[in-house]
Design a protein around this nucleic acid. Structure first.
Length: 639
DNA sequence: GAGCACTGC
C-alpha cells in the first residue's frame, strides 16, 4: 500500500497523457552490443520528433525494435504515424498496434484519428471483440487488443496483411501478449520482411531483447530508449511497520491535509472493503477539521462503481478543497500487471517495479511525494517484478490454440517465460480427456473446431454436445452467462437483503446454471432495459455483455452445423449436457455440509453467492463452474 | 453460514 500526493489541476490517475510534455522527450538509440546500463548513461535530452528519422532507420535495419519508454512518452500514438508517413503501409499493408485492454485500443485509435484529421474507422481504425471499427480496404493503422491479433493467427498464420506489428505495454505480460510474442518470433523466421516493435518499461527491456536476439544475427534486434520527462518524487517510509495500514493511510492523509499548500492525494489499497473502511475513518475525523485547512473530498475508485462514478475522480478539485482518491489498482491502468495470483485472490506484496511506477504517478505534472506505509527495509525485500501471468494460470485453452497453429511439441516451444512443466502437462492431459487431442497429441476434428471458439474448452465441449441432448438454445445462454461476471449486484440505495430477495425470484432448484438461464430469459422477455435490471438487482452491463457473447457463440454454432433447439423445460436433458462440459468439476455432498471434489478429493465449501448455499443438493452430487480459494477455504458454484 | 484485485477472445 502506498500513498501518493500530486498537484491540482491535473486529471490524476488513468488520465490521458498530457500532450505538452510529449514534445520534450528524449530518444536514446543504441546498438545491441552496448550494455543495457547505457540507457542511464547516454541521456541526451532530445525531443522524439527530432529522432523520427533515427527510429525509422532502426526499424528499417533491424527486424525487431524494443522501445523503452514510460506511458505518455508518445510512442503509442506517434510511432505508428511515423511508420505510415514513411510508407510502411504501402501496397495495402497494415501497421498494427496491440494493447492489452479494449479501452486503450479504442481511445488511442480515436486520438490518432483526430491527430491525422480523419474519421475513425477509415485510415485509422480499431478492432476489439464485438467491435470492428476498421475498413478492410482503407485502414492503414489498426489498433487492436493483443488477444484479437493472436486469434487472427489462427486464420492467417503468417499475419500476411501486416508490415509492422507493435506490441505495446509488453511489460504487463498478459497471457495474450506472451503468446503473441512467441508466435511473432516464429513468424519472423518465415517472413523476415515483417517488422516487430515491442514497447516496454525499462526493467523488462533486456528480457525481450534477449528473447528476440537469441540465436539470430546481430542485425535482428535493437533497443531504443524514449525516457520521458519526470518531476522529482520524494519517497518517504514508515520507521516501523504498522499493524493497521488502513487507519495509517487515513492518518497520513489527514496530516498531509493539515499542511500548507495545494495538491490532491491518491491512496492505493488492496480492495473494495478496505476502501470503504478508509473512507469511513476519514469521514469520522472530518468534523474536527480546522477551518483554515482545505476541505477534504474523499472519492472511492474501484471496478464496482459505474462509469460515471469513476469519472468523478477526474474533475478538478474546487478552490479550498482537496481530492483524496482512494483506489484499488484500477488507477494503475496501462501501468502494471496484477499483484495477485489467479488461483487464489490472496493479497501479495507489490513488486518493486510496480511500487516505483506508482511513485511515478506523483511526478507527472509537478514535483510530488510518495508515502510508503511500510519501512524502507520492506521495499528492499520486495520481488523485482510480478511473475508473468502465463506462469501462474491454467493453459488448457491457449495450448489448444497453439496446437491449432501447428505447434505440437509444447515442451520445446520457446516461451518468453516458460510456464511450469506441470501446468503444460495438466493442460495436455485435460485436452486429451476432453477428446480435443489424440494419444499422439494431435488435434482431433472436434479440437480443430473448438480451438476457434472464444470460450473455455469445457464450455465449447458442452456447446458441441448440445446437439445430442437437443438443448442448444439453453446451453448457448448458459455458456454466455457463465463467462460474464457479477451478474447479480446490489443496486445503489438498495439493501443487500432486498437484492437477495430479488435474486431469489430467479432461483432454480437445480442450481446456479439454471438460475442464470432464468435471469437471462427474464431480461430478454422484459425489454432488456436498465431500469428493469436495477429493480431486479441485475447488472445491466453484465446482461448486455451476455447478449453480445451469446450472439457471437451462436455464429460459431451455426458455422459448425450445430442445431439450436430448445429442451422445452426438460431440465434433466440440460443437466446431462452441462455435465458433458463440466465433467471434470464434480463434487459429492457430505453429511457435514461440505463437499468432496471427485478430482483430488478436496474439501470444498459452497460459495455464498451460490443458490445452493442455503440448500442441500437433491442427488448428493454437484458439478461446479469454478473453484477458488477464499478466506474460508475452497468454495464452489454448483449446479 | 459468509464474500468479490484486474484483464482478454
Amino acid at each position: 500500500m502506498s500513498l501518493i500526493f500530486w498537484k491540482p489541476g491535473t486529471a490524476g490517475p488513468g488520465s490521458n497523457v498530457d500532450r505538452a510534455s510529449e514534445k520534450e522527450e528524449n530518444v536514446v538509440p543504441y546498438a545491441p552490443q552496448d550494455s543495457h546500463l547505457s540507457i542511464q548513461r547516454q541521456q541526451e535530452r532530445l525531443p522524439i520528433y527530432k529522432h523520427k528519422e533515427k527510429l525509422l532507420y532502426c526499424i528499417e535495419k533491424y527486424g525487431v525494435m524494443i522501445v523503452v519508454g514510460q506511458t505518455g512518452c508518445g510512442k503509442t500514438t506517434q510511432l505508428p504515424q511515423y511508420l505510415l508517413q514513411a510508407g510502411w503501409a504501402a501496397d495495402g499493408l497494415v501497421i498494427a498496434c496491440t494493447q492489452p485492454r479494449r479501452i486503450a485500443a479504442t481511445s488511442v485509435a480515436s486520438r490518432v484519428a483526430d491527430e491525422v484529421g480523419t474519421k475513425l474507422g477509415n485510415e485509422i481504425g480499431y478492432t476489439i471483440r464485438f467491435e470492428d471499427v476498421s475498413s478492410k480496404e482503407n485502414t492503414r493503422i489498426l489498433y487492436m487488443t493483443d488477444g484479437m491479433l493472436f486469434r487472427e493467427t489462427l486464420v492467417d498464420p503468417l499475419l500476411s496483411r501486416y508490415s509492422v506489428i507493435m506490441v505495446d505495454e509488453a511489460h504487463e505480460r498478459s497471457v495474450y501478449t506472451d503468446l503473441l510474442l512467441g508466435i511473432l518470433r516464429k513468424i519472423r523466421k518465415k517472413r523476415p520482411a515483417l517488422r516487430i516493435i515491442v514497447s516496454s518499461a525499462t526493467l523488462d527491456a533486456m528480457k525481450f531483447f534477449d528473447y528476440f536476439s537469441q540465436g539470430s544475427s546481430p542485425e535482428e534486434c535493437t533497443i531504443v530508449s524514449l525516457e520521458g520527462r519526470m518531476y522529482p518524487v520524494e519517497v518517504a517510509y514508515l520507521s516501523e511497520p504498522t499493524a493497521d495500514y488502513i487507519q495509517k493511510a487515513a492518518e497520513v492523509v489527514w496530516n498531509l491535509n493539515l499542511q500548507e499548500g495545494s495538491g490532491d492525494i491518491l491512496v492505493f489499497l488492496t480492495g473494495r472493503e478496505d476502501i470503504d473502511r478508509c473512507l469511513q475513518e476519514l469521514s469520522d475525523m472530518l468534523p474536527t477539521l480546522p477551518v483554515r485547512a482545505r476541505r477534504l473530498i474523499p472519492l472511492p475508485l474501484h471496478a464496482g462503481l459505474t462509469t460515471d462514478e469513476q469519472l468523478l475522480v477526474f474533475q478538478p478539485a474546487a478552490a479550498g478543497t482537496r481530492k483524496v482518491i482512494i483506489s484499488t489498482n484500477i488507477a494503475e491502468i496501462r501501468v502494471y500487471h496484477p499483484t495477485t495470483t489467479l488461483a487464489s485472490l490472496a493479497t501479495v506484496p507489490i513488486s518493486a517495479a510496480s511500487a516505483t511506477q506508482r511513485a511515478g504517478r506523483a511526478g507527472r505534472t509537478a514535483p510530488g511525494i510518495c508515502y510508503r506505509l511500510y519501512p524502507a527495509s520492506f521495499f528492499n525485500a520486495l520481488a523485482l517484478t510480478t511473475s508473468p501471468e502465463i506462469t501462474r494460470t491454467d493453459l488448457t485453452t491457449p495450448i489448444l490454440q497453439l496446437k491449432s497453429l501447428g505447434i505440437n511439441d509444447l515442451m520445446k516451444f520457446d516461451w518468453v517465460s516458460a510456464p511450469p512443466a506441470e501446468t503444460v502437462l495438466r493442460a495436455l492431459e485435460g485436452l486429451y480427456a476432453a477428446g480435443m487431442i489424440d494419444e499422439n497429441g494431435k488435434l482431433t476434428p472436434m479440437g480443430e473446431k473448438v480451438s476457434e471458439c472464444p470460450v473455455e474448452v469445457g464450455i465449447a465441449r458442452m456447446l458441441f454436445r448440445s446437439k445430442e441432448y437437443k438443448c442448444g438454445e439453453e446451453i448457448l445462454t448458459i455458456a454466455a452467462m457463465t463467462t460474464v461476471q457479477d451478474v447479480f449486484i446490489i443496486p445503489d440505495g438498495a439493501s443487500g437483503a432486498l437484492a437477495e430477495l430479488e435474486r431469489r425470484k430467479f432461483t432454480a432448484e437445480e442450481g446456479d446454471h439454471l438460475t442464470l438461464l432464468n435471469a437471462y430469459n427474464a431480461f430478454t422477455r422484459y425489454g432488456r432495459s436498465s431500469g428493469w435490471c436495477k429493480s431486479h438487482a441485475l447488472s445491466f452491463r453484465a446482461m448486455s455483455r451476455a447478449i453480445s457473447i451469446r450472439a457471437q457463440l451462436k455464429k460459431y454454432m451455426l458455422r459448425f452445423n450445430l442445431p439450436i433447439e430448445s429442451c422445452e423445460g426438460d431440465s434433466k436433458r440440460l443437466a446431462r449436457c452441462l455435465v458433458s462440459g463440466y465433467w471434470r468439476n464434480g463434487a459429492r455432498w457430505m453429511p457435514d455440509g461440505t463437499y468432496r471434489s471427485v478430482r483430488g478429493n478436496l474439501v470444498l465449501h459452497v460459495h455464498p453467492t451460490s443458490v445452493l448455499f442455503t440448500r442441500k443438493p437433491r442427488t448428493g452430487w454437484v458439478i461446479f463452474h469454478e473453484m477458488e480459494e477464499t478466506k474460508k477455504a475452497q468454495s464452489v458454484r454448483p449446479l
